[in-house]
Computed example of a mutant assay.
Amino acid sequence: MVDDIHQTEHDPASDPEAIEELLEEDAALDIDFEDVVEAAAATVEPAEGGTGSEGSSDPALVADLERQVAGLKAQLEDRANQSMRIAADFENYRKRTSKEKDELATQIKGDTVIELLPVVDNFERARSQIKPQTEAEMTIHKSYQSVYKQLVETLKRLGVSAMRAEGQEFDPLLHEAVMREPTAEHPEGAVIEEFVRGYQLGDRVLRHAMVKVAAPPENAPDNAEAGDGADSV
Rank of each mutant, 00 (worst) to 15 (best):
D102V: 11
I130K: 12
P172G: 10
A224S: 05
L23I: 10
G229F: 01
R207V: 10
G202M: 04
A177L: 07
D102Q: 09
S57P: 07
E100K: 08
Q150W: 00
R127G: 06
V62Q: 08
I140V: 15
E115F: 11
P46N: 08
F123W: 09
D231Y: 12
E24C: 06
E225L: 05
K101M: 01
S128D: 01
V69M: 14
T112A: 14
P46G: 05
L104V: 03
K156V: 13
E9S: 01
V233Y: 08
L23E: 05
P216A: 11
K109V: 15
Q168P: 06
V119D: 09
G227H: 00
A226F: 10
A70Y: 03
D30S: 14
D231C: 01
E24D: 10
F33S: 10
E194K: 05
Y93M: 08
K131D: 14
D89Q: 15
R164D: 14
E9P: 00
V160I: 14
V2T: 04
E169P: 04
A165R: 05
E48F: 13
Q82F: 10
S53W: 04
I114Q: 15
I192N: 08
K131L: 14
R125L: 13
L117R: 03
P217H: 02
S98T: 11
R94A: 12
L29G: 06
G198Y: 09
D171A: 03
Y148F: 04
V213A: 13
L174C: 01
Q107N: 03
P12I: 13
P217Y: 00
E135I: 02
H186L: 09
V178N: 07
A136V: 10
K212L: 02
A42K: 07
Y148H: 12
E77Y: 03
V147Q: 02
K95P: 09
G229R: 01
V233S: 06
V196Y: 00
E115K: 15
G52Y: 09
D111L: 15
V211P: 03
N219L: 10
H10A: 15
A39K: 13
D171R: 00
T154Q: 13
F90P: 10
E181R: 12
L174T: 08
D231H: 12
L155M: 01
D15A: 13
D58W: 02
E66D: 11
P187T: 07
R85Y: 05
L76H: 12
A190Y: 09
E25D: 02
Q82K: 14
E54R: 04
V211L: 07
E66V: 11
V191G: 01
A60E: 06
R96V: 02
M210L: 06
T154S: 14
